[in-house]
Amino acid sequence: MQLFPCPFCGPRDEREFHFAGEIGKTRPDTTGEVSAEDWARYLNTQRNEKGRVREVWMHLTCSELFVMERDSVTMEVLSSTPLREDVE
């Protein structure tokens, strides 16, 4: 069972967390033209990398959305930072 570090709460049991997606996706501005290809890429394209990955997770008990860097092979957690940049 993994221990994930919530940037606010500290290390907690993995059962308190929920995977929210790979980092790096920006929602296209849908008030303008968005091509079907761009939208499909936004919806469906996953890097699904082996090794070092950067992902968005939610700590369900405090609802913090944060960025976790981890190794998808060894399961080692490399870093964890708040999604918002103005806090520690």
Partner: peptide
């Protein structure tokens, strides 16, 4: 009910215990 100890502090009192928030 959970992995907890007095030596593992947390800024938040919110956690899961026996699967309950």
């Amino acid at each position: 009910g959970t992995e907890i100890g007095l030596q593992q502090p947390s800024r938040s009192a919110a956690r899961m215990l026996f699967g309950l928030g």
